[in-house]
Design a protein around this nucleic acid. Sequence first.
RNA 1: GGCCUCAUCGUCUAGUCUGGUCUAGGACACGGGCUUUUCAAGCCUGGAACUCGGGUUCAAAUCCCGAUGAGGUCACCA
Length: 448
Amino acid sequence: MKNNSPVAVRFAPSPTGFFHIGSVRTALFNFLFARHYGGQFVLRIEDTDVARSKKEYEDNILENMRWLGLEWDVFARQSERADIHATELQKLLASGAAYVSKEKVEKEGDRGEVIRLRNPGTIVTFHDEIRGDISVDTTDLGDFIIARSPTEPLFHFSVVVDDFLMGITHVIRGEDHISNTPRQILIQEALGAPRPIYAHLPLILAADRSKLSKRKHGERVALSYYKQAGFLRAALINYIALLGWNPNQNEREIFSLDELIHLFDIAHIQKAGAIFNEEKLRWFNREYMRTQPPELLLQDIVKVLSKRYFAGAVETLAPKIVSSIRERVSVTSDVETMMDAGEFSYFFETPVLDAKKIIWKDTSTETTRAHLEKIISFVTTLTSDFDAEKAKMVLWPYAEHQGRGAVLWPMRYALSGREKSPDPFTLAAILGKEETIKRLKAALVAIS
RNA sequence: GGCCUCAUCGUCUAGUCUGGUCUAGGACACGGGCUUUUCAAGCCUGGAACUCGGGUUCAAAUCCCGAUGAGGUCACCA
């Protein structure tokens, strides 16, 4: 497993929950670092806690790592390295650096005997690439437990053994591991293992400034939530990379994964935690959506609208409305939100008109009626396959002359029955000549 | 509470190492305006921050000390 690469890093999630944003960031930074230096990126599943680890979670992590494009070079499962851990543990026991200790059983699952590290009780000072030197008096740690039995190592021990034997040169992980580091260094020293270079990343925070957690902050901490909502991987990667790191490229904010790899450095990593802001993520996503071919959004629109409306009607409608929707959404799930708010209902059903709303501001009923009649006569002159541009051409001079609001508002409202909608020309083109005239006449009846 | 870490607009950040060009720059969000009526988008524009207190210095967002505040962590979880 040793290699000649200058650096080797690892992302070591425990499969005890769905891949969440904080883990994504740790994985991303490790990936970026490895690729930047042409080193090795190890994905190691820390599943030594048999009771809490689930295959389902492991699958979720792997699947999402691939989806994000964070390909790893080496894959390992800690549970499959049990023999290695047992061997190393025996060495410590044999040398007296660790010992079997009798315990009183306090809670269910506790053992009568566990293995503790003989703590020399020194002051451990280690260098952190982001924070500088950190010193901790390890006497308060006591002879801490490193294994439940000779074949059941605990987190700190298996991490140190694996990092050592897998040749990990840099440990890049969350700030919540700072307090674990002295303990792990003590184990390294007992094992005679070299000390890797540490870099503790600032945490990604929830709006309340506390660490993002499933229990406190719900589904929005899981990457799959954003994936399902239709966020693009490039937007997610770009946004998360810039949370706690800055490439220092003047004012630029949009970067591809390759550019991030090229630019990545530990020197520009932030020390303070950063709040995850979905609004800004949405902005990134819109930026990336613009670069996507419209066909992709079209497929999503068809999928969403088919849930509620007749598929045949959706098929013919969707291509006509895709460009106007494209301007109004930041993420594809917005399409569903719009549908739930009734946004598209007027394409499928005759709108129910509120007579008062047909009239623009202080325009009189008589004038509005005259405008509507005029609009009908204009529309009548159009060929049945007219588009929005054609409709605008015949109607615009009249609207311009009579007052845009006075003419266009009643038309738009008559066609949509809503205070907010696409412009009247687009509506008319989508609805078609016959339906447009029918709805305009209905408005005329409504205000009579 | 012990230990550890952190501290620039509401949020993400540039600037801090190598003090002066910072009356602190950008982005998101928000306010106002413009645009083919509404909504959105776009463009223009506005408000908005160096946590506080001491030092050092001709000069401090930048260096030092302290206070305060915030977070992390204290398992036979990872």
